[in-house]
Design a binder for these strands. Structure first.
Lengths: 126, 126
DNA sequence: TTATAATTGGAAATAGTTCTCAATAAGAGG
DNA sequence: CCTCTTATTGAGAACTATTTCCAATTATAA
């Protein structure tokens, strides 16, 4: 399997890399359309999956909605259950935690997806 | 809004409470059918959502598949990317982490969903 | 330049879940 | 125990996000 660097793949990647927000596939599609990049919807899906499998972007879901994140670095998520927004924060996961999981459970951690649910600063003020 | 304790709601709850595994809605449906409990599929979905909203069970997703977990206590998940199984472990999240999120980001954490992805003991041996 | 097979587009198919709506039944109050 | 209100149910239709199909295209190696 030789991977090919197609115009469409590059454009999908460019579209999401430049935005520091979590995007749905439809939103990526909209950005491409706005920039006059012609890419089919199925191809957008295919390439978002391709890119996240190859760790160039991240894929995650919240409340049944799938999002893609141009930032490939592991980071934790805060999800406000009031306004439904989510925020990125640097990961609180420690190497210590990972070695503990390895020692106690024999499980070698390669990646992690952490979501904290609660109420954000803004919504707490109200 | 007065919640009612219907036969169906109790049966859905009983079906998932007794199993210490992560179940899809279809699997819960199958258990009910096996036990000769007649509950419609839509009602199974409705009650699984009802129960998780009321924190009697937990709902989460992995790889695009939604699972329900009869154990309402917050706990972390290990997800093996080789055999695709997942395991529960006691949560590594510390109160210290939660207060840090509150102090640094003004975000009040009420719940958390942690998944560590990697390779399980069994699959590492091979 | 040619050959190979990865990739694409667009439509159709799929799968999981929610919605619709008339019928049923749980719980409150008399 | 009866009556009333309305939450809940069942069954199928509707919905929606995503994947699949397949013929046409095109990136890459030789």
């Amino acid at each position: 399997m030789i991977y090919r660097n197609t115009r469409q793949r590059k454009e999908v990647y460019e579209a999401i890399k430049g935005v520091n927000k979590h995007l749905t596939a439809e939103q990526v599609m909209a950005i491409l359309k706005e920039d006059n990049k012609k890419v089919g919807l199925a191809t957008v899906y295919r390439n978002l999956n391709y890119l996240s499998e190859n760790k160039l972007i991240r894929k995650f879901e919240e409340n049944g909605v799938v999002f893609y994140d141009g930032n490939p670095e592991p980071h934790d998520h805060l999800h406000c259950v009031v306004c439904n927004k989510h925020f990125d924060i640097p990961s609180l996961v420690k190497d210590k935690d990972l070695s503990r999981i390895e020692n106690e459970w024999g499980f070698k951690v390669e990646d992690h997806f952490m979501t904290y649910e609660g109420v954000c600063e803004n919504c707490r003020k109200k």
